[in-house]
Amino acid sequence: MADGTAALAQTGAARSAAGPRRGGLHRMMRRQSTTAFLLCLPLLALVLGLMIFPAFYAGWLAMLNKSMERFVGLGNFTFLFRRETFWNVVWQSCIFAITAVFFKALIGFILAHLVHVLPAKGQRKWRGMLLVPWVMPLAIGTLAWWWLLDPSYSAFNWVIRAAGGENIAWLGDTFWARFSVILVNVWYGAPFFMIMYLAALKSVPEQLYEAAAIDGANAWQKLWHITLPMMRNIISITVLFSLIVTFANFDIVRILTNGGPRDTTHIFATYSFALGIGSGDIPLGAAVSLFMFPILGVFAIFILRGVRRRADAMG
C-alpha cells in the first residue's frame, strides 16, 4: 500500500483524479487488517481445529490407558519399547523410506535426463505416459499390484515359470514382501521425481553446457559440475518431501500385506492403525504414530529452509 500512495503522488493527473477518494483509501487501510483476518478465519478454523489441535490431542491420548479412563503417563511408550514388534516397525519404516526414496530419486533423475534428450515434440507424449502411476489413486494402483503379486495367480510368477524358474511367494516371504512394498512405492513415486527434475533440468541455462563443451568437458563432467550443482536445491527439497510422505505412507502396506508376514512389513502408519483402530487401543495407536513426529519435524525444518532459499533466489 505504501507503494500505492507513492505512485499516486508521482503523477499529478492521477492525484487530482484520486483526490476525493483518498479519504476512502485511508479508511479502507484501517479496516483492512480486520477484513484480512476475517478472510483467513475459515483457514484458521480448519488448521487449528482439525490439524493443530488433533496433533496435541494425540499427545494427551497417548498418555491414557486402553479404556481412556486413567492417566498412565509414559506407560504406553515403555510398553512399546519392550515389544520386539515395535522395534521391527521402527527398523522397517527406515528401510522402507530410505530405500524407496533412493530408488525413486535415482529413477526419476535418469528418466528426466532421458526425456530431456528427446526432441521437444515427443517430450510431451512420453511425459504424459510416464506420469500415469502418479495420477491413479494410490489405493487403486496398489489393488492392481496386489493382483499381480497374488499367491496362486501371480502374473510375474507365470513369467518366471516360463523362464524355467520357481514360483516366488511375493507377499508371503519376509524378504519378498518387503521388496514388493518398496517396489510399489517406487512405481508410484518415481514419476513425480521425474517431473520435478525435468522442470529443474529445463531451468539450467544451455550456455553453461556450451561453454563446458568448448572447454572439452565430457558428459560425466557436465553432469557433475553443471547439472548437479544447478539442481542441488530442488533435489534436496524433493528428497526431503518424499522422505516425509514415504515415511508416513499407509495405503501400500495396508493393501498389499497388512503388515504380514508376521508383522515384518508393518510401518508406523499401518502399525498404529492396526493397534488404534484394528484392536481398539486408541492410546497405544496414538503413541506409535507420535514416533513419526520428531523425525518428520527435522525433515520439515530442512525443507522450510530450502523453500525459503529457493524463494529468495527467485526474488
Binding site: 494425540a58 488404534g276 513419526m292
Partner: peptide, 13 residues
C-alpha cells in the same frame, strides 16, 4: 507437511 497418518487417531475421537 503434517501427514494424515499422524492425525487419524486423534481425529477418530
Amino acid at each position: 507437511l503434517i501427514p494424515e497418518t499422524l492425525l487419524f487417531i486423534p481425529l477418530f475421537q
